[in-house]
């Protein structure tokens, strides 16, 4: 089961990455080129997956959309991981009021529905990729902070850390040399799962119009466009949703598979 998850998840994720790479050198048509004489072409024939309301090639947009989605998700998770892990490690060193403060801030931030926060953020700084990255990134911070703190505390209790402390190494040096390498595996697993969530979130924000702006192709925005032409051209709604689902599924499976590999104890419980 977990081996299968690893392979299927790895395969799907590799597929998304491959799409993004291919799109950077080749797409059947330029993904932003419009052709008003070829609007709403059905799939098959000259355009594999048909054309949209501006006569753009859907297949090219899907390919290019993979790199958009991946970039935004990676950037958002990177932001969340960098800040979150720093905070988590810090909390592991200095427990007490700092810990409490971080947790209370979490409570406040998380109390508001993420969608609402993203909408308000877009209203303040304007819609765009940067808004999506920031909004998703912020919600990733506490996740990584919690994971990193938990894992770091375990490592701090290990003998070799005690030895290092006895040898007079400071907390920063210990964190960098001993803690971070030892919690990296956990972070990679969490990062993979957060990547999946980030892709889902990006699609949702772009669907609402506060994420990726045209002409940059985006799966979520393709769905939003498709919704207005549902009756005229139903095929527009199928492929973007499908690739979102497959990409998220792939990363989720990969994350689960990696976790099982890393922590065989968990396998029994699952």
């Amino acid at each position: 089961m977990s081996r299968a998850a690893l392979w299927i998840g790895g395969g799907l994720s590799a597929g998304v990455v491959a799409m993004a790479l291919v799109a950077s050198v080749w797409t059947p048509y330029p993904p932003t080129r419009m052709n008003m004489r070829a609007r709403f072409q059905p799939p098959g024939g000259e355009w594999w997956l048909g054309t949209d309301h501006f006569g753009r090639d859907i297949a090219s947009m899907i390919l290019a959309g993979a790199s958009t989605s991946l970039m935004v998700a990676l950037a958002a998770v990177a932001v969340g991981m960098l800040i979150g892990v720093s905070l988590g490690c810090l909390a592991a060193v200095r427990r007490g009021w700092l810990d409490d403060l971080v947790m209370r801030c979490n409570d406040v931030v998380f109390a508001f529905p993420a969608v609402l926060s993203a909408l308000v953020l877009a209203a303040v700084i304007g819609a765009g990729a940067h808004t999506a990255i920031l909004a998703i990134g912020v919600f990733n911070i506490p996740v990584f902070a919690r994971v990193a703190r938990g894992a770091a505390l375990q490592v701090w209790a290990r003998e070799f850390v005690t030895a290092a402390r006895a040898a007079g190494r400071g907390p920063l040096a210990i964190t960098l040399v001993h803690i971070v390498p030892n919690i990296a595996g956990v972070l990679v697993v969490q990062g993979t799962i957060q990547l999946a969530l980030a892709m889902l979130a990006e699609a949702g924000l772009s669907f609402l119009g506060v994420g990726i702006q045209p002409p940059t192709p985006s799966w979520g925005r393709m769905l939003a466009d498709a919704q207005t032409y549902l009756e005229r051209a139903p095929h527009l709604a199928l492929v973007p949703g499908l690739v979102i689902a497959l990409a998220v599924l792939g990363l989720n499976l990969l994350g689960d598979g990696l976790r099982d590999m890393l922590d065989p104890k968990l396998r029994r419980a699952r």
Partner: peptide, 20 residues
């Protein structure tokens, strides 16, 4: 706006769309 941005690109004008 989407269409016009594409047309402007044809004559060498880069118009960045900002939805507000």
């Amino acid at each position: 706006g989407e269409i016009i941005a594409a047309m402007l690109a044809d004559v060498g004008i880069t118009a960045t769309i900002e939805a507000v």
